[in-house]
Structure formats: C-alpha cells, structure tokens
Design a binder for these strands. Structure first.
Lengths: 201, 201
DNA sequence: GGGATCATGTAACGCGTTACATGATTCT
DNA sequence: AGAATCATGTAACGCGTTACATGATCCC
C-alpha cells in the first residue's frame, strides 16, 4: 500500500502544465498524472493509468486528495486533484516510517543472466535497443533538470532553490540511465565478441 | 508471469554451495534459491521465499524443472531442483521475446520527491542508512566478482571465461549500488544543509 | 480519412504480500 | 538459554495487469 504515497508525492510537484501557479500544491488530472508516471515519476515508481484512476478515487474517498470538476467545451471534462492537509500529514508520516528496500524487476537482466545457455542474438538486439532508449532519456532528463534550475548552477540551486525534491530524484534517474546505457553497450559488445569467437571454431 | 524465468535463470547458475560440480546445470533447494534471491539475483529480481516454493512446485508440474529428494539426518530433508531440457527451451524462447521495460519501486525516492513538503530529519537518516547498506553490497559484489573471474583479469575473463552471464549482471548490481551510495550521500548532504539554513532564519 | 491526443473508467484474473505454522540443530 | 540457521509450506487478501469500453477533437 505505497502507491498512494507515490501519487501524493507526484501530485505535490505542481501544476499539470496549464500554466497558472496554483499556490504551492499542484493540481493534476488522472490523465496528466499518468503522463507524469510515464516520465519523471517512472524513475522511482511505475503504475498504469487504470491504477492511478482507481487510486485517486480511493484517496478522494479518504479525504487525502480533493478533486474538482473542470468543464471543457472542446475537450472532455476532467477532474483536477490536489493534496489536502490530511494528505500532507499522511505523506509526512510515511516519510518518517522506515522504508522497504527498493526493488527492481528487469526482464533483460534475467536474459543476460542466462546468456551462457540461450541464443544471444536477440539479447544483443535488445541490449542495443535498451541503450538507445536510455540515451533518449538522458537527453530528456538533461533538459528537465535545466528547466528546473533555471539560471542558477546546480550547486546554487540545491542550496537555495525552493523546490529540490523532484530535482534530486531526477538526478537519480539520470545517473541510472547513464549506467544503463554504459552497461548495455558493454554487455552487447562482450556478447557479440563471444559469438564471433564461437563461430570461428 | 516472468518470475518463472528469473527462477530458471537463477537455477542454471550452478551448485548451491555443496561443492561437487553437478555438470553445467546447477541444483538448488528452495531454501538455497531464496538465499540467492536475497543476494545476487536481487540485482534484477525480488521475490519472497513463499513465492519461490510455490513457483518451483508449478515449474515441476510443468516439467520445466526436475526435483529430487535428498534425505539428511542432522538436517530436515530437502528437495534439489535442476532445469530440464524443456526448461532450457522455455528460457530460450523468453530470451528471444521482447522485454517489458524494467521497473523500479523505491519508497526512499518517493520520500525525497516529497522532501520540500515533509520533515526531512528522518529522511536524512534513512539516506545515510541506505548509503551504508550500499557500501556493504559494494564490498560483497567486489568479492563475488573476484571469485568468479579467478586468476584472469576482467577483460580476459569476459572474452574467454566459460560462464559470464552472472558476472555481467553482478557488474550491473555493483554499478547500481555505487550510484546508490553516491546519490544517497549527496542528497543527505543537501538536505542537511538546507535544514541548517532553515533553522538560522 | 486515419492516427494521435485528451479523458475516464469497468471487470476478471492472477500474482505478490502478509500472516501463520512447524520443528530440529547449531552457534553464542 | 536464546538466537540464528536449515527447511518447507498453507491461507487470505489485496494489489497489479490485461483486456475491454467510449467518444470527441486535433494534426497530417
């Protein structure tokens, strides 16, 4: 039961892109939240849109978020959610409680683990694909970080910027993707060379 | 339904520590497998012992692994499992199929994301704890890698070693934990400084 | 005209987590 | 004497995934 906290933390970050600062706490629709979970939040949590809609409904029932209807003419209507005081209190309690160890699940690593017993051809392709996806994310995160820190340099921003949480988690995501790219390329090269050596015999 | 593949890949690695090479494919008891999932395999998959016992039973029913009873006198009896040819075929098909993108879930990152809205005291403590756990893993992985490559240096081993899969995934784990340590220490320092600056006012 | 984007869900099923259950031996 | 290790599960519940459902605008 920790998706709720990921949702609360993501909601806090701020405006869903409509411009217009809503005063510290952000407002997101389910749809916008799902997008956030696809990009930045994906660095530390993964969830499908259906889950988010369901979770938002539950959080609203419990009073941890408040939704308001926004009628649109050219677009379907939507509901925007913001974190309530009770939601903040819940997050605070969560932050103080001990964390479960993080966990990872990665199909591609399972395949590499078994690389000595399976055909490595498709695995090499997937590693190269992974490297290029990582590269794209690196580019993206670079831009996102630049936008967040504005005109300050990183050190300055982290000392005096007013909202550093998302910046810090994004830094982690950046480092992760860089490692991802390096490792994928390295492993692809190793497996390619071993394939070549194998054919020679 | 991919835990099965993680289990198969983990079983392949080799002997469960009893000494005595069992000829290429390894043998593990559920208990030993659970330990492996706690250490090395935890780099790319996470599962609880109960899940492993259940999964082994299912895999056996489907003929992907074969179990044999080992009667012990001073210890409770145990069942050792090895991957069958059908199991290998299943793994091979898995390796060739496209991977789902990897995913992470990390409570601590959720807390850092919310760092601007919650009390950072406990979060800083948890970051420091995380850094020291990462340090311990770094030490451990260093030793494990050294053991696997024996007297060869890394480049040599990766070219000519006979089993490199587990080595490569362990390298990923090592890099991950190094990043983990660096990032945790950095973030703890940033949040500590901001706390201090906050108190001064 | 076709595909992407905006927008929100329902329903079924299965996997994963939490809690419980047992019991002998070895180490501190 | 108490804690840790070895060893294997069962049962209940809830979360997460897959598949399905709808429908209007915007862009190429």
């Amino acid at each position: 039961m920790a998706l709720r906290h990921a949702v609360l933390a993501a909601l806090l970050v701020g405006d869903g892109g409509d411009g217009g600062d809503s005063g510290g706490r952000g407002e997101y629709s389910g749809y916008q939240l799902a997008k956030a979970f696809d990009i930045g939040v994906a660095n530390f949590w993964h969830a499908l849109p259906q889950q988010l809609y369901a979770e938002l409904a539950k959080l609203e029932q419990e009073g941890l978020v408040a939704g308001r209807q926004v009628i649109q003419e050219t677009r379907p209507n939507k509901r925007l959610f913001r974190v309530t005081d009770a939601g903040l209190a819940e997050l605070d309690a969560f932050a103080a409680a001990s964390s479960k160890p993080s966990f990872i699940r990665d199909d591609l690593l399972v395949k590499v683990q078994a690389a000595d017993s399976v055909d490595t051809g498709p695995v090499i392709e997937q590693l190269e694909e992974r490297a290029s996806v990582a590269e794209a994310k690196i580019q993206l995160f670079g831009k996102v970080l630049g936008k967040m820190r504005g005109e300050l340099d990183e050190e300055e921003f982290l000392r005096r910027g007013e909202r550093v949480g998302p910046y810090l988690t994004c830094l982690r995501g950046l480092a992760l993707e860089q490692e991802n790219r390096e490792w994928s390329m390295r492993v692809a090269a190793v497996l390619r060379e071993r394939r070549a050596a194998h054919v020679e015999r």
